[in-house]
Simulated assay, not measured.
Amino acid sequence: MFGSNELKQTRFYQDVFAEGKQEGIQEAKLEVIPQLLELGLNIQQIAQGLGLDEQVVRQAGQPKS
């Protein structure tokens, strides 16, 4: 059986961990968009600053219904 240290060294674990980390970063970016819009930044500024597509920023800035 694998111990936790051996498991963490596998390619699979590292890939899954990296993917989860990227998803978390993306989620955090999407959550901050409404606040940035409230501060007066425009769609283009937010997209450029966060490295996102403008359409993604527009969608994330829409009020939740």
Rank of each mutant, 00 (worst) to 15 (best):
G3I: 06
S4M: 08
S4Y: 08
N5D: 10
N5C: 13
L7E: 11
L7N: 11
Q9C: 04
Q9N: 13
T10C: 09
R11T: 13
F12C: 10
F12G: 14
Y13D: 03
Y13N: 07
D15C: 10
V16T: 09
G20L: 05
K21D: 09
Q22R: 14
Q22E: 09
Q22H: 12
Q22W: 05
Q22D: 11
E23Y: 05
G24W: 02
I25W: 02
I25A: 07
I25P: 01
Q26T: 08
Q26A: 10
A28E: 09
A28C: 08
A28M: 12
K29D: 02
K29H: 04
L30K: 09
E31Y: 09
E31I: 07
V32N: 03
I33C: 01
P34M: 00
L36N: 01
L37D: 02
L37N: 00
E38W: 06
E38Q: 13
L39D: 14
L41P: 02
L41R: 03
N42G: 12
N42W: 06
I43L: 12
I46R: 01
Q48Y: 09
G49V: 05
L50Q: 07
L50M: 11
G51I: 03
D53I: 12
D53R: 14
E54P: 08
E54K: 13
V56D: 03
R58Y: 07
R58N: 13
Q59F: 05
A60H: 04
A60D: 06
G61P: 00
Q62A: 15
Q62I: 10
P63G: 09
P63Q: 07
